[in-house]
Design a protein around this nucleic acid. Structure first.
Length: 565
DNA sequence: CGGTGAACGTA
DNA sequence: CGTACGTTCACCGA
């Protein structure tokens, strides 16, 4: 994986475009300002299609901005997160881990104040990157401001990557492939931020207006609109006109006074009390509209939707828990009522594809349960499970979800016993994950990501608090499924990224089990077919050919909210 | 002014 | 609400 066809791309500190960048390929290093280096990167890609090694995808920011497509990468930061868990994965930490140095001995980066000049111990000679203890020098960020240092910086990244590959092959035969997939996902994250999510601005503004009222010209108008929204609730409460609806404690006291005695004012707690007092319904409607007015209102539109009518936010390839993708600025939690505003631009369509029942299908792969794998041959996995258990489909579904997530409320009891009997291998995997979590032991996803379970209130050791142990157990059981599903999803997304490129199509949204592509109209059917083919290919590679079927519901639409074909 | 919890959107 | 995440608000203590 890191043989002869390797190129290294690293950047020094500074602003994108003007910062120093080095490209190391075939023993030769080229350095220059980032924006000037983009075409050199493109040349190497076109001629050699190497595997690119970088400390993090951010090193390729200028190439991405210049729309240079890079096919294969080894991202040292993503590899570190997979091998060792956690989110922190800077060069100093990744280097240390790759060289067997304890993470708590990594020297802290200088903060830039005078104290550093006085306290700095044993500064290495100025042309040396590694200190006496074997760590990257603490001031490596400043040190790489000098372009003559960038060759050593690139070689350090390559050395780290090679050690990571050795470590990965010792952990799991699948881990190197997972690094490749995660590295592509991290690159895709930069492209998602660059391209944005296409919106129909007029329609989106209209939807916002329906919840928040018309756009205010002045602060006074804004305050008046806010008072008008509040009045729709307060009119049910004569004598309490000064109640602050945004203060949960005041709302709770008010509700108790009108006969609604609840432990909290959360939506699902209040929902059953709609008939007790009209203020309950009014409050819930107010909360829905207030969410749009404050979080997804005009301020959000103005801040994050560009003049090209695209919504942009930062993306990260893996969160700190099980490894799902995250996104900012509402890209991952846009209220459903605003979805009609997400629309293909003229001459284009959206291709929407979502994975069906991904988590139980992933459980079949991770556990290697042959009987459960057989159930994945059905379009609806719960049908054969229900048949085997002799229960209704709805009961089978609840039982499977209860087994995976540890739901304790509800009546899944009998069906759960049936599951244990019918699919002992799959249920055994979930039980072992739960037990590992209770003991605070780390575990690995199918693709090899280390998930630490001690992170749940790490201050209290396992065994000290039964409720905490149970929480760690539930977290672990969920993480092995959710994290493995995230790996399959990213392998799929990376495959789609590569295979629809020649259609001028692009992935514009990743949502855990759903992909949205922006596609020229004339390539709609071809892009949809390639999305489905990419799932077959990615699933076969990720699962190592396990007899488990994955299914996508794929449709060509104009708006995200449109019904499926 | 920074940190915390409540609340709620998404999967 | 089984588990995550991001955002906004009010409150708390400095």
């Amino acid at each position: 994986m890191l043989g002869a066809d390797v190129a290294v791309l690293v950047a020094g500190p500074g602003h994108h475009g003007t910062r120093p960048v080095a490209l190391l390929h075939d023993g030769e290093v080229r350095t220059g300002a980032g924006s000037d280096m983009a075409h050199a990167v493109a040349e190497v890609e076109a001629a050699h299609r190497p595997r690119w090694v970088w400390w993090a995808a951010q090193d390729a920011a200028e190439a991405v901005a210049a729309r240079v497509h890079l096919a294969r990468a080894w991202d040292v930061a993503e590899a570190h997160r997979l091998l060792h868990g956690g989110v922190e994965a800077g060069p100093g930490l990744a280097w240390a881990a790759a060289h067997g140095l304890a993470p708590d001995t990594v020297p802290a980066a200088p903060t830039g104040d005078l104290f550093d000049l006085v306290a700095a111990p044993d500064l290495p000679a100025d042309d040396v990157l590694v200190d006496a203890a074997g760590h990257l020098r603490a001031d490596h960020a400043r040190w790489t401001e000098d372009p003559t240092h960038l060759r050593a910086w690139a070689e350090a990244a390559l050395a780290t990557a090679r050690r990571q590959l050795d470590a990965a092959s010792r952990v799991s035969p699948r881990l190197a492939a997972t690094v490749a997939s995660e590295s592509a996902a991290a690159l895709l994250c930069l492209e998602l931020e660059r391209d944005g999510l296409p919106l129909d601005r007029a329609r989106t503004e209209q939807l916002v207006a329906e919840a928040a009222g018309p756009r205010s010209a002045t602060d006074a108008d804004d305050a008046a609109a806010r008072r008008a929204r509040d009045a729709l609730v307060l009119r049910h409460l004569p004598g309490r006109e000064h109640l602050d609806l945004r203060n949960p404690a005041q709302v709770k006291d008010m509700l108790a006074a009108v006969g609604v005695d609840v432990p909290s004012t959360r939506k699902w707690v209040l929902e059953p009390y709609r008939d007790v007092h009209p203020v309950v319904g009014a409050l819930l409607t107010w909360r829905r509209d207030e969410r749009i007015a404050t979080t997804y209102g005009y301020r959000w539109l103005d801040a994050h939707v560009g003049p090209d009518d695209r919504l942009r936010g930062r993306w990260t390839a893996c969160d700190g828990a099980a490894g799902r993708m995250t996104a900012e600025n509402g890209l991952h939690n846009l209220p459903a009522v605003l979805r009609p505003g997400v629309a293909a631009h003229p001459g284009h369509v959206l291709v929407r594809a979502d994975l069906g029942q991904i988590e139980p299908r992933v459980l079949a792969v991770v556990s290697g349960d042959a009987a459960f794998a057989a159930a994945t041959r059905a379009d609806d996995l719960y049908a054969p499970v229900a048949q085997r258990l002799g229960v209704e489909r709805a009961v089978a579904k609840i039982a499977v979800l209860a087994a995976m997530y540890g739901q304790r409320s509800g009546a899944a009891g009998e069906a759960l016993k049936g599951l244990e009997a019918a699919y002992p291998v799959a249920m055994g995997l979930l039980d072992r994950a739960y037990a590992s979590g209770r003991r605070g032991e780390p575990l690995r996803t199918y693709g090899g990501r280390l998930v630490r379970t001690g992170r749940v209130l790490a201050a209290r050791p396992p065994g000290a608090d039964p409720a905490l142990d149970a929480a760690r157990g539930r977290f672990a059981r969920n993480a092995v499924i959710q994290g493995s599903a995230a790996e399959l999803f990213k392998a799929w997304a990376a495959t789609v990224r590569a295979t629809v490129r020649d259609l001028d199509a692009a992935v514009v949204l990743c949502l855990h089990d759903e992909l949205l592509l922006h596609v020229p109209q004339e390539h709609a059917q071809e892009a949809a077919a390639r999305v489905d083919l990419a799932l077959t290919d990615a699933a076969r590679r990720w699962s190592g050919g396990a007899p488990v079927r994955f299914v996508a519901d794929t449709s060509v639409i104009a708006r995200w909210s449109d019904a499926k074909d």
